Structures are given as structure tokens and as C-alpha cells.
Simulated assay, not measured.
Amino acid sequence: MITHFQYKPLVKQTTLPGWRISFFFNGIHYNAIYHSNGEIEWGHVLPPKEQESKIKEQIHELMLFHIYE
């Protein structure tokens, strides 16, 4: 489960081209860029391949709730 989810626009005063996101998943801190097309560009720490789709699904839900309501 994702905890401590935070997001902020890459460019002030606009929702494009995307958002910088950070969160914890299973006690590991992740940073990424969430692009306006839904693509996720991971930072230095990559999620395990077997959990990546689960994490992406949760991120998409959170972004829909916070940004695209």
C-alpha cells in the first residue's frame, strides 16, 4: 500500500507537463515524475518488477482523485 503520497506540479501555476511525486511503498521511499499522459518516470529507486503494476495502479487512482476529479 502506498503511504505518504505527495505531488507537486513540475512547472508552477500549471498542471502540465506533469507532476513530481513521492511516496513510500513497503517502507521504501520512491520518487518519480508522473507525466500528463499517465507515464511514470522512476527516480533512482525502481520498484520490484513483480510489484510495479500494482504500484502504478495505485498511483493512477491517487492522481485521478487529486488532479483529475
Rank of each mutant, 00 (worst) to 15 (best):
Gly27Ala: 12
Pro17Cys: 07
Asn26Tyr: 08
Ala32Thr: 05
His44Gly: 10
Leu64Phe: 11
Gly27Ser: 07
Ser36Ala: 09
Tyr34Asp: 04
Ile67Val: 14
Leu16Gln: 14
Leu62Ala: 07
Ile33Gly: 04
Ala32Asn: 05
Thr14Cys: 01
Leu62Ile: 15
Val45Pro: 01
Phe25Pro: 01
Leu46Arg: 13
Lys8Ile: 03
Asn26Gly: 04
Gly18Met: 05
Phe5Met: 02
Glu41Asp: 12
Asn37Cys: 08
Lys49Cys: 05
Gln58Cys: 04
Leu16Met: 10
His4Trp: 10
Phe23Glu: 01
Phe24Asn: 06
Glu57Phe: 13
Ala32Gln: 04
Ile55Pro: 03
Ile28Leu: 10
His35Met: 06
Tyr34Thr: 00
Ile40Ala: 00
Pro17Asn: 08
Trp42Tyr: 11
Ile40Phe: 07
Ser22Pro: 02
Glu52Gly: 02
Pro48Glu: 08
Thr14Trp: 01
Tyr30Phe: 14
Glu39Asp: 09
His60Leu: 13
His60Met: 14
Gly27Cys: 11
Glu69Gln: 13
Asn26Phe: 12
Phe5Tyr: 02
Lys8Pro: 02
Asn31Arg: 10
Ser36Met: 06
Gly18Ser: 06
Glu57Asp: 12
Pro17Asp: 08
Gly18Thr: 08
Leu64Gln: 11
Pro48Ile: 04
Arg20His: 14
Gly38Val: 09
Ser36Trp: 08
Leu64Cys: 12
Tyr34Leu: 01
Met1Gly: 04
Ile59Asn: 00
Tyr7Thr: 00
Glu52Cys: 11
Tyr34Phe: 15
Thr14Glu: 00
His66Cys: 07
Gly27Met: 09
Leu16Tyr: 15
Pro9Cys: 05
Ser53Val: 15
Gly38Ile: 10
Ala32Phe: 03
Ile28Phe: 11
Glu57Tyr: 13
Gly43Trp: 14
Lys49Val: 13
Ile28Cys: 04
Val45Lys: 13
Glu41Phe: 11
Ile2Thr: 04
Val11Glu: 06
Ser22His: 13
His35Gln: 12
Gln13Ser: 05
Phe25Ile: 03
Glu39Lys: 15
Glu61Phe: 06
Met1Thr: 13
Gln58Lys: 15
His4Glu: 05
Tyr34Pro: 02
His44Ile: 09
Ala32Ser: 13
Glu50Trp: 09
Gly38Phe: 13
Thr14Gly: 01
Thr15His: 11
Tyr7Ile: 00
Ile2His: 01
Val45Phe: 13
Tyr30Ala: 03
Leu64Tyr: 09
Glu41Gly: 05
Ala32Met: 06
Gln58Ile: 07
Phe25Lys: 03
Ile40Asn: 03
Gly18Leu: 03
Gln51Ile: 15
Leu64His: 13
Lys56Trp: 08
Leu10Met: 11
Asn37Trp: 14
Gln6Ile: 09
Met1Ile: 05
Gln6Trp: 10
Glu52Asp: 11
Lys49Tyr: 10
Ile21Lys: 01
Gly18Tyr: 01
Met63Trp: 14
Phe5Arg: 00
Glu50Leu: 08
Ser53Thr: 15
Ser36Gln: 09
Ser36Asn: 10
Asn37Leu: 10
Pro9Ile: 02
Glu39Met: 11
Val11Arg: 12
Thr14Lys: 01
